[in-house]
């Protein structure tokens, strides 16, 4: 079974037509990969479907806007994948 990062990188590559080998765990989805908010909705949709979760994009955006979090915490891919793993684990614990 491929890692969370591999799955997310594949989603990003296919959704945004970005070469897969340019996507690394340290890539920032916005600053490095140039993904805009509308494209990120497609990525969020694919992640939601693939992992059976609901990425809390509104909460994250609000935290960034309020200065309570940085975009790096959510949009650097290794951090994004850690959040996904947390959501998957929380879903499993609640099932």
């Amino acid at each position: 079974m491929s890692s969370t990062f591999d799955q997310v990188a594949t989603i990003i590559a296919e959704t945004c037509d970005i070469p897969r080998d340019t996507i690394t765990p340290d890539s920032h989805a916005i600053d490095d990969l140039g993904i805009d908010s509308l494209d990120f909705l497609d990525i969020a949709f694919a992640i939601d479907k693939q992992f059976g979760i609901k990425l809390p994009l509104e909460k994250w955006t609000q935290e960034v806007n309020d200065g309570k979090a940085t975009t790096e915490q959510y949009f650097v891919l290794k951090n994004l994948c850690a959040r996904i793993d947390e959501l998957v684990a929380a879903k499993g614990a609640g099932a």
Binding site: A44, F45, D48, K49, K54, L55, P56, L57, K59, T61
Partner: peptide, 9 residues
Amino acid sequence: SHEGSGYAM
């Protein structure tokens, strides 16, 4: 078809 966080399809 899908209700996400802050978006829907």
